[in-house]
Design a protein around this nucleic acid. Structure first.
Lengths: 355, 355
DNA sequence: GTGAAAGCGCTAACAC
DNA sequence: GTGTTAGCGCTTTCAC
């Protein structure tokens, strides 16, 4: 009845059961086992049950390595992140996983520690695993990386910064837009003596993102006829708690009547709030503070920080759905660029001028 | 000269170059190409160069799926985490990656959202990828999961909680020990009116970790003849900022002369500090506070929080090295249990009684 | 509804 | 130092 007698495998100890063992035990061909696993409806219920029983009896676990080779579909999606220890990037991975799990895709996660050389090395290793798509963060890549990506001949989605020219598809937000939204928000609240704290964009590496935000901020200020002289670029990126402390000190010395300030990062904003309290400047009574990033700490300080947030979880899900469309061929191959937008998280560091 | 004429592959568009193409172009056999890639020293320099040139000319990227199948070594290490959005677990992954990268192993990361059913589902999917070892967090698993793990016939390392019986190997720390260290630290600083804030261990799910800490704390207190009546179990796990606020309120109402308090989590400890400030209780002048976990927020509040820390990055590296030993067969198969220990991060929330 | 043949792209094992 | 043979465990394709 069955064909598979199994061509004399070298008997070296107990082996994991293969599809052949299942087939033999159930008295069917291997093909039927495959069908039970992938398209059970094509198999007669009686046969199906026999096969299923054989599977559980043997404790058979299909080998997807072999399956991938035969079907030429690994089910892997490569994800290259700068680091895992950043809540935002983790949220992206979570969002992605959520939608990809459904379709039995697996994320192959790598991180680069913000090192472009490491990015290239990781990507090289990843490509050997034959991912069906590649997702990576950031807009800056080596030429060699861009080339590898093209050669790979699978969909490529860049995550995060939408401002620069994407290699193929992109899902993210615009840092420039962050600045514009920040300025617009403060202006709409009636403030006019508006400042900002950012870093000096000296180094080409690093904080072009913060600089993009601050430029958007200045543009919007100018568009409303407001001076940008209280926009302070101080210290080196990345900005931190201490940066906020120092920068707001300088700004307040220069303009004690400052009404509102935008910090390019929540970390810096927390420093701003703390330093204000030390100086006896009431937040938000005298000075309103707006941050960016929605870091956990902003939720915990007093007053809780109003901030501009990017929903990275949603970003991950959007990327995941785009991927599914791309992989399912339900979409033309024209490069897609998706802006997930920005949210203002209204907490208590901005004075309510409406009352 | 060459053998491989390539058995008439169906010509459907441009294919990725295979090892066969490289072999043909370099005028060698496939085996020689494999050797150039894995053991270059075994190949004559002249041949090696020809092969290398062919590889770059074609842009050949080896297919590890096929390689894995043939060599029966996938190079995958499965890692099952509760979540990616927790800095501690991310650090574990980083530490692991650092040591595994060297030997060309890849982490296959999954997360369970703290759901035991999801753990089983993820593990099932993972096993189909034939990982060479399995790392997973937590000491609580379904029986079915334990069974799958045994059947898998690869090294299994549990990460984190050392108190309960490990399935095989374990790398972690003891929550019970955390409590003992906490109590010993406060006692050694000369405090006697010592309290603690934890959650009620009502639910079997969830916070047995916090409960383990608090029990160790009580034991050590008793061992020193100190009353445990100021150890407060309040509210449901997991403890948060608000938990600390409420709990210290209750405790201070009960014993205004409280000298020192241990919070089972930094989050709660921060709530404690904040509430004390609101009440005008000076930290650490009047009340010393000790946390656990070394959360980022503890570094930023004022006064910075003294806390008991587990070095999760080191934990990851230790696990990685154990794995390499296990995989390299350089170690007996006796279950290993490695305690990475605890560190007290001395900041400013505990009064210096030595002056 | 089920099965047989023919690989997927690579490497282990052994021959020369 | 290099090549040949024979699979790894599955799925595709087509036959019945």
């Amino acid at each position: 009845m069955s064909n598979d007698t199994g061509s004399a495998r070298k008997a070296r100890g107990p082996q994991r059961p293969t599809i052949r063992d299942v087939a033999r035990l159930a008295g069917v061909s291997r093909m039927t086992v495959t069908r039970v696993l992938s398209e059970p409806d094509l198999v007669l219920p009686a046969t199906r049950d026999r096969v299923k029983k054989a599977i559980t009896d043997l404790g058979y676990v299909p080998d997807r390595t072999a399956g991938s080779l035969a079907s030429r579909r690994t089910g892997f999606i490569a994800l290259v992140l700068p680091t895992l220890t950043n809540a935002n990037f983790s949220m992206v991975a979570h969002g992605l996983t959520e939608v990809l799990r459904e379709k039995d895709y697996h994320l192959l996660i790598s991180y680069t520690d913000y090192d472009l050389g490491e990015e290239e090395r990781q990507l090289t290793a990843l490509l050997e695993r034959r991912p069906e798509a590649i997702l990576l963060t950031g807009a800056k890549h080596r030429r060699s990386v861009a080339r590898m990506l093209m050669m790979a001949d699978v969909p490529v989605i860049e995550l995060a910064d939408l401002s620069s020219e994407p290699i193929q598809h992109a899902v993210g937000f615009s840092n420039h837009q962050v600045g514009r939204v920040a300025a617009r928000h403060l202006i709409s609240r009636g403030f006019r003596r508006i400042g900002a704290v950012a870093s000096r964009p000296d180094r080409d590496q690093g904080d072009y993102r913060g600089e993009a935000r601050i430029q958007g901020f200045e543009e919007e200020l100018r568009a409303h006829g407001i001076s940008t002289e209280l926009v302070l670029r101080h210290g080196a990126a990345p900005v931190s708690y201490d940066h906020g402390v120092e920068a707001i000190g300088i700004l307040l010395d220069r303009e004690p009547a400052l009404e509102a300030v935008f910090a390019v990062s929540d970390l810096s904003a927390v420093g701003v709030v703390t330093e204000c309290q030390r100086r006896g400047v009431d937040v938000p009574g005298q000075l309103s503070v707006l941050g960016f990033g929605d870091f956990e700490i902003g939720r915990v300080i007093n007053p809780p920080l109003t901030t501009i947030q990017v929903d990275f979880h949603a970003l991950g899900k959007r990327a995941g759905h785009l991927l599914l469309d791309l992989l399912g061929g339900e979409i033309e191959d024209e490069p897609q660029s998706i802006d997930v937008g920005l949210n203002i998280i209204d907490r208590a560091s901005i004075r309510d001028t409406t009352e």
